[in-house]
Write a protein that binds this DNA or RNA. Structure first.
Ligand SMILES: [Mn+2]
Ligand SMILES: [Mn+2]
Ligand SMILES: [Mn+2]
Ligand SMILES: [Mn+2]
Lengths: 219, 219
DNA sequence: GTTGTAAATTAGGTAAAACTAATTATGTAT
DNA sequence: ATACATAATTAGTTTTACCTAATTTACAAC
């Protein structure tokens, strides 16, 4: 049962939203895909018809088992291609998302496996996100947000939750990348902003919006 | 002016047909794309509107300069991806065409150049077809059909004109590949079939349909 | 020059995936 | 309980890229 480009994007989005929110509402999907709610309900009915999701207004959208397998397959391909673009073609990590967004939809039975082998079976993509294995299993890794750190706690950057170009550009400018050592010097009560050091350089102040999107491996 | 997947396929097809036939008729395009003539005329008008081709029933379709640049860009990407699939992912040469058919439509300013560099700036794809440079220039190479050879003439296989899976499988079975040395032992007048040796092995008889699709470098 | 066939063209229609503009349902605040 | 705001849904429309079924044009054979 082959899926269209658009169906694949919906499944992927529902999967991602399901990880953070307890209910995947029609509105949330519409926002994530920047589509009109009227378009979204059409597609949700189509996916329901194909038994890739269940949907009703109170429960929201939930992937069925085949739906989740399909979503993980797209995510796997997306992240493998990102590794390829960065490791082999020398792209910067902030340039690859929109290309992987296209490459993830290439259909071929053997492609993901061959690409995976060629890349040396990487476990994480250039943003630190885990690459699902072909059986859908995810490696576990960085999981604590910088925003949840206490004063004086240290950790190593393992992943970023926002992969938009502006955010990644901002991190580059801060000299912050995967593997950077972070220490929290201070935490301001009134807006949750933090003063941190990155690899022991001069202290910098960062907003809660920033610290919420950095995941670390605790020391 | 970005192009759709479908527009790109039409431009590519018109380019290829223009190399072999003097007039690219609507019918020829319809056959090549396995589309209905009524669909083809719609698209030809759209491409004409965008000034990527000229078209009228007597002249047929002709690429304008921007149209040819676009076509060569798709062909370049197609052939570079085929090299990648064969050289890096270990696909066989008969498996890659339909994947390249998808990959050629990935849009990114830097991608073709980065891929080209990564592959070591190859001049020919796995089927021996020349890869246009970014300026549209084609390397020249194998150009004589086996069907045009005389008795006792020899040559080296440099390219195949038909890249369909059945044809390539047939060649594999004959033990014929790029670089194979061919000698013509006999040519049958009544159906133009030939008796040849491949790398000096036992003589084999091949049809004119086959010899028409093999291009050689003459010794 | 009539006739037959193939090629080109017209007219109208469909499916996918989006949209806008109402309308209805739901939940929260007063 | 009422009112307001937000979410969900309906109805109808658009664009792209196809289609089928006529119809018209071109051209070759006789
Ligand atoms: Mn990404
Ligand atoms: Mn996508
Ligand atoms: Mn090919
Ligand atoms: Mn194509």
């Amino acid at each position: 049962m082959k899926k269209t480009y658009s169906e694949e994007n919906y499944l992927k989005t529902i999967y991602h939203l399901g990880k953070s929110e307890s209910k995947v509402s029609l509105k949330a999907i519409a926002d994530a895909l920047e589509n009109n709610p009227a378009s979204v309900i059409d597609m949700l009915r189509k996916l329901k018809e194909k038994e890739l999701i269940t949907y009703d207004k109170t429960q929201g959208a939930i992937l069925t088992s085949p739906g989740e397998i399909a979503a993980l397959d797209i995510i796997r391909k997306h992240r493998l291609w990102e590794v390829f673009l960065v490791e082999k073609l020398n792209y910067d990590w902030d340039e690859v998302h929109h290309i992987a967004e296209q490459l993830e939809h290439i259909h071929d039975e053997q492609l993901a496996k061959k690409l995976d082998d060629f890349l040396g079976n990487p476990e994480f993509d250039p943003h630190g996100d885990p690459i699902p294995a072909s059986n859908g299993k995810m490696p576990v890794y960085a999981n604590k947000r910088l925003s949840e750190f206490e004063i004086n706690q240290t950790g190593t950057v393992g992943s970023v939750r926002d992969t938009s170009t502006p955010f990644l550009k901002y991190l580059k400018q801060l000299n912050l990348g995967l593997g950077s050592k972070i220490k929290v010097l201070d935490k301001l009560d009134f807006d949750q902003s933090m003063v941190i050091t990155i690899d022991d350089s001069e202290p910098k102040t960062v907003s809660s919006k920033m610290t919420d999107n950095i995941l670390l491996i605790t020391a």
